[in-house]
């Protein structure tokens, strides 16, 4: 790895986090996790449920506390000013039902006291235009379909004009058709804006389709197990990515890596059988 520190936009250094449950058993969720994200890079954090990938994303945005390590944005420890330069996209669109679509987008600007209400409104409309929902600005969230709600969630993040987008499985709760459509649309938008994204997912194909870099995590405790660079041409398009030899090789490699980890907890007899086969 030859990463130049000066180019590095976001850095996580040796972050560890343990929860204690009711019986005061400590469970290590993240163990010494480090990663670097360059300007304009799309980085996916890929792993099984419970590997701590969402926890990691929350730590980056200081939404929860952690035990060890540090998070740096533009070489500075993350504090209030740095948090204003990050925007979180939630798994559920998390729209406030008592606010209109536009007011929901504006929520993310209300802590920025330097903006006038006119500027807030302009930014919200501009963000909604980017996701194609400026016509829905005055609608209530419940009037929109799930896919549209999730796009409002993306618009809310866009309005901040952040240095980094933190996306927590933003398409995870959508039906398959909507998910594929949004992957394409939001992917294209991010590409056009040259946005920097940290994207949490458990979907291998989604990670390959969207990412420049995939960070594969293992669970119990959550660790970075491998980092893959995705050398596929852009713009990417679901069907040419799926058939691309490099994508297939990468997919194979990731699946193998995940399966090796599964073998760790397979019964000893079965593991031996598998071993004798190869």
């Amino acid at each position: 790895m030859t990463l130049n520190d000066d180019q590095c936009l976001l850095e996580v250094r040796g972050v560890s986090k343990a929860f204690s449950d009711r019986r005061h058993n400590r469970k290590v969720v993240l163990d010494n996790v480090s990663l670097k994200v360059q300007q304009g890079e799309f980085v996916s954090i890929l792993g099984k449920s419970g590997c701590g990938k969402t926890t990691l994303l929350r730590i980056i945005d200081s939404l929860i506390e952690w035990d060890e390590g540090e998070v740096l944005l533009e070489n500075q420890l993350v504090g209030k000013a740095q948090r204003q330069r990050m925007a979180f996209v939630f798994q559920d669109s998390n729209l406030l039902p008592w606010r209109s679509v536009k007011e929901n987008v504006e929520l993310n600007l209300e802590s920025m006291k330097e903006l006038s209400s006119q500027e807030r409104s302009d930014r919200a409309i501009e963000a909604l235009r980017l996701v194609g929902l400026e016509d829905a600005a005055d609608h209530a969230p419940y009037q929109l379909s799930g896919g549209m709600q999730q796009r409002v969630g993306v618009a809310r993040a866009l309005a901040r004009q952040p240095a980094v987008f933190l996306m927590d499985e933003p398409f995870g709760h959508l039906d398959n058709f909507t998910r594929e459509r949004l992957q394409q649309e939001i992917g294209a938008l991010i590409e056009r804006l040259h946005a920097t994204v940290v994207f949490v997912t458990h979907d291998i194909d989604e990670a390959i389709l969207l990412s420049d870099k995939i960070i594969l995590m293992e669970s119990d405790p959550g660790r970075v197990s491998k980092v893959f660079n995705v050398d596929l041409p852009r713009p990417r398009w679901r069907y040419n990515v799926r058939a691309h030899p490099e994508a297939m090789r990468l997919r194979e490699e990731i699946v193998t890596d995940l399966h090796l980890k599964i073998a760790d907890w397979v019964q000893p007899e079965e593991a031996m059988l598998n071993g004798s086969e190869s």
């Binding site: 016509d135 649309e185 398009w237």
Partner: peptide
């Protein structure tokens, strides 16, 4: 064959 954004995001009929 790249999809145009304007086309991809049009929801007038859905709204």
């Amino acid at each position: 064959m790249a999809v145009s954004l304007e086309e991809g995001f049009s929801d007038a009929t859905e709204l």
